[in-house]
Nucleic acid binder design. Structure first.
Lengths: 233, 233
DNA sequence: CTTTCTATAACTGCATACTATATCAAAGTA
DNA sequence: TACTTTGATATAGTATGCAGTTATAGAAAG
């Protein structure tokens, strides 16, 4: 409890963050720290402390925290303070249900709106994904998977959908590698992607939606499985 | 241009807003002013001016504006200021597509999770809706409609879904009365609601989703129709 | 009359100062 | 011992000041 030096390690503002408003830099910085687990669920976010660490006044910190609350990454108790949100299994279930519906929508819209250019990109991404499964490196596989789905989302050409799905993705960010089996049996995963890829290319909305749904269902079952294991964290 | 006294009329902080942090009171106040059109799309929101009107300093105003940006009600241009968002037809289309998917989800989940108590409430709401159509008062009808759908959303028992749908509803708030026909022919509307009501009560997920979808589709077509009319506003 | 440049006013971004409130602990009371 | 009260401290809530940026109006040139 009160492990404040957990923060100091590796939390900073770098790169192109110079050009943007401070509040956004702080926001990204905090967001990253939360998503990567550098700041743990339940931990308190005090304005002055963070201000000292990041070298800013309280104002940008406050604004960043408000934004994080909107994404459900922190919970603010008025008058008291802000803490990193603790997600229950039930919360995650809610998120996954919504994600399922929206990934279906994404796949469905992509079927009807994808351009030739995007088809080529998707083809590339699909192949990259298949290749990644041979590496048996689950980080690489998960990243290739995310990229593949992002291309479909882009092809769907619905900004609102994109924004919402991005927000939902944050909620399960820390589990993103966990739905990859570790035993090297990726047939199902590849088959699903192949199905989805072909459906989108050929404009078969029904099949595309169905495989998007089963993809999320699989992901959720893996995450849930993992949650059982370390239930008493 | 620069009609600042548009704001003064009827914008204030009242009631139970006393008990909550100022930023939330300001947020609700501004939100209401935007949704009801008291502040018009494209209009500028300046911190000092609003502060004077609402009797607070700039800080709570700033924070409220950031929150409004999250809901897409205002657009912030860094360095410059905040303006009430101007929604294009394309933006609205995006919103309606997502809404359609999520209202379907809502109806579908409600089928499986509704309690006896909630069934009774829904029955009441359905009857109230039918009754309202006889009044031919489109405000009353729209409100009854919203209430009916909110009950279904509540029965779906998915908080995330609820939050997202609430946010989306804000985006089309100003059109909420416009999808009610003015000619007093509400048969279709009533039939849709009856279908949805019965499907949810009997747990027929497929039918429930279908009628939720067609309900949104109808709403969207009415809104779009109306948009044609005053295209050059 | 229109366009471009420039001076000025207005406003946001960030910081800091001040105030209200919540939390925690110690002391007192039943 | 358990419960309540009270006071000190930490922290969020709010206000304001300053600096730098952006918008704007007016003058000058075309």
């Amino acid at each position: 409890m009160g492990d404040n030096n957990l923060l100091t390690a590796g939390m900073s503002m770098t790169e192109e963050q110079q050009a943007m408003p401070l509040r956004d830099a702080v926001f990204m910085s905090l967001r990253k720290a939360i998503l990567t687990g550098k700041i743990k669920p339940g931990e308190r976010l005090t304005e002055v402390k963070l201000g000292k660490i990041l070298g800013t006044s309280r104002t940008p910190i406050r604004e960043a925290i408000r934004l994080l609350e909107q994404e459900n990454l922190v919970t603010i108790i008025p008058g008291s303070g802000a803490r990193v949100s603790r997600m229950t299994v039930s919360d995650l279930q809610d998120v996954m249900e919504v994600r399922s519906a929206l990934e279906q929508l994404s796949a469905g819209l992509a079927c009807e709106r994808i351009t030739e250019q995007e088809k080529a990109e998707l083809y590339e991404a699909y192949n990259a994904f298949v290749r990644s499964t041979q590496s048996e490196d689950s980080i690489m596989i998960a990243d290739a998977d995310v990229h593949f789905h992002n291309l479909i989302l882009k092809a769907a050409k619905n900004q609102k959908l994109g924004k919402i799905l991005d927000g939902l993705a944050d909620n399960i960010y820390r589990y993103r590698y966990e739905f990859i089996r570790e035993d090297g049996h990726y047939e199902d995963l590849i088959r699903e992607h192949k199905e989805l890829y072909e459906a989108v290319i050929s404009g078969n909305r029904e099949v595309a939606e169905k495989s998007a749904r089963s993809h999320i269902a699989r992901q959720w079952s893996y995450i849930r499985e993992h949650l059982q294991e370390d239930a008493g964290e």
